[in-house]
């Protein structure tokens, strides 16, 4: 069994409907957040390249996917406008047995 933590990111379209554009995932076997979604989408390219601020602990510097859980936990503060909105980090257990 593998434990995953994940955050979903939604954008608001011109009709004010939400559309999921990415899922950020961290497994308990890895230290790097993986991104499911269109990697050419500017949201994803931007966040991977530019990073995000550590809102939670206000530590200096930026956080990137390789920062693991710290990155994952701060997405909800970075994307909070409504036009882009991230969920809290949630857990999911995946049974890897055949």
């Amino acid at each position: 069994m593998t434990l995953f933590y994940f955050v979903e990111l939604f954008e608001l379209d011109q009709n004010a409907n939400q559309k999921k554009i990415a899922t950020f995932k961290l497994s308990d076997e890895s230290e790097i957040v993986e991104v499911d979604g269109d990697h050419d989408h500017r949201v994803i390219a931007n966040i991977k390249g530019e990073g995000i601020f550590d809102y939670k602990y206000a530590r200096p510097g930026k956080l990137f996917p390789y920062d693991g859980m710290n990155f994952l936990e701060n997405l909800k503060y970075h994307f909070r406008s409504g036009y882009l909105l991230a969920t809290d980090a949630r857990e999911q257990v995946v049974d890897g047995s055949p």
């Binding site: 994307f79 909070r80 406008s81 409504g82 909105l85």
Partner: peptide, 21 residues
């Protein structure tokens, strides 16, 4: 809206939409 921050889309009768936080 789905997401951590509590944001709502509000339709105003005959006058468009607003975001409520």
């Amino acid at each position: 809206l789905l997401g951590f921050a509590n944001v709502k889309v509000v339709s105003i009768k005959d006058d468009g939409k607003a975001l409520f936080k």
